[in-house]
Nucleic acid binder design. Structure first.
Lengths: 217, 217
DNA sequence: ACACACATGTAATTGGTTACATGATTTC
DNA sequence: GAAATCATGTAACCAATTACATGTGTGT
């Protein structure tokens, strides 16, 4: 009876605003938790089905099989399940930041490549930041009175902080690299959409004098 | 003949320091890119095999099948493949931050839960930061002269910046929450179950005027 | 002889993405 | 009645995790 995290996202969204269709839920996810939590279509509908089967949400509207709008609400049981999930420690999934990875190996790349990556990163970050600022404005305008508001703001300010730090870093990074690599030429990069911020896992290099493995590569 | 990202990590590591066993490669990954790139056992050996088959690395040492140490080196072809991978735009994989997710839904949680999460986050972040600072020290001590050094430092300073921003945020977040949630009965990190939560529907803001997307819940 | 770290591997499964296929409703 | 957008779904795939199974070399 385990549920995957997609299930809890759905429950959480419905707990805040009930009676949404799958389509709407998806949109809501994107507009609210989207900046730190990506969901895919492929997961949504099957999960919704499963939640209905487990009676954590109830479906109203058309009969199954039809393609007409159906809307979902969370049940009391659903709220409980959500609540107990919220109470257990969050899991830190392994970080995966391809940008940093490519940057780390920058020495192996052709000249200019790393600078290009950083520039692309910078642009994405700026765009992302603009989006969050916009979101902040809208949230204040429409949702300031809602009970969840303080929590929402917390996630927002977290995001803003990370992005600003990233932006500050990118300036100095470019300066450093231009010094190190000489002049820049090319650009790689055509824009994509999503950005992410890495979230840590806690293991870090272990090293002790005696066994002294490779800390020097 | 697509390669997965694990393959490029291996190539990159071997490009920096050749002639390592699978075991060593894994350790090196952890000690260098580990803080922003998690790899799992399960991927390493099969990928290594595949790389050998594609002649991007060569294996020396014992014969296949044996469990004695084998060591791998990158080939010229391997370097080329790595180089061209480095040149293509990095991919931003969808963000997934369970901490923020739980925080976002904090209103649905029992009292103290969110504070507990933030405290846990704070601790992890501090530990992580300490680890990075340690790593920085070691890197300066042992690797300062190596050609990749400036790039490694870039990833490091990025991490430090993010962590410091996260730490700063967590302070204000705790302050905010303590104000908002009244007093804490901190229930840090051990699962709870049962709680009373009657509380009927919460009906909140409805969809607004026409046109614009629902930016409010 | 035993423990322990070094070392290599595989099987089962998850969790998720992408791409596609299709129907319903609104708007012009 | 065509187009756009709202809406629901599925199939194919794949990257990665987990847990397990096993062997080797060294030091005590």
């Amino acid at each position: 009876m385990e549920h995957k995290r997609t299930a809890y996202v759905i429950l959480g969204i419905l707990a805040i605003h009930d009676h949404q269709s799958g389509y709407e839920i998806r949109a809501t996810i994107e507009q609210t938790v989207g900046f730190f939590w990506g969901e895919s279509y492929g997961q949504l509908y099957p999960t919704l089905k499963r939640l209905v089967a487990d009676e954590l949400v109830v479906a109203g509207g058309a009969d199954t099989g039809s393609r007409t709008r159906r809307s979902y609400s969370i049940t009391a049981a659903g709220r409980e399940v959500l609540k107990s999930w919220l109470a257990i420690p969050f899991r830190d999934d392994p970080p995966r930041d391809e940008f940093l990875l490519k940057l780390f190996f920058g020495q192996q790349a052709a000249p200019g490549i790393s600078v290009g990556h950083i520039q692309a990163f910078q642009q994405k970050t700026r765009g992302f930041l603009d989006g969050l600022l916009e979101l902040e404005k809208l949230a204040h305008a429409y949702n300031a009175h809602q009970p969840g508001f303080p929590y929402w703001m917390l996630t927002l300010t977290y995001g803003l902080g990370q992005l600003r730090a990233a932006l500050a870093w990118s300036e100095t990074a470019l300066a450093t690299l231009n010094a190190a690599e000489g002049v820049a030429s090319p650009n790689p990069h055509s824009p994509t959409e999503r950005s992410q911020q890495p979230e840590g896992r806690d293991q870090i290099a272990e090293n002790h004098p005696s066994g002294a493995k490779a800390h020097h590569l």
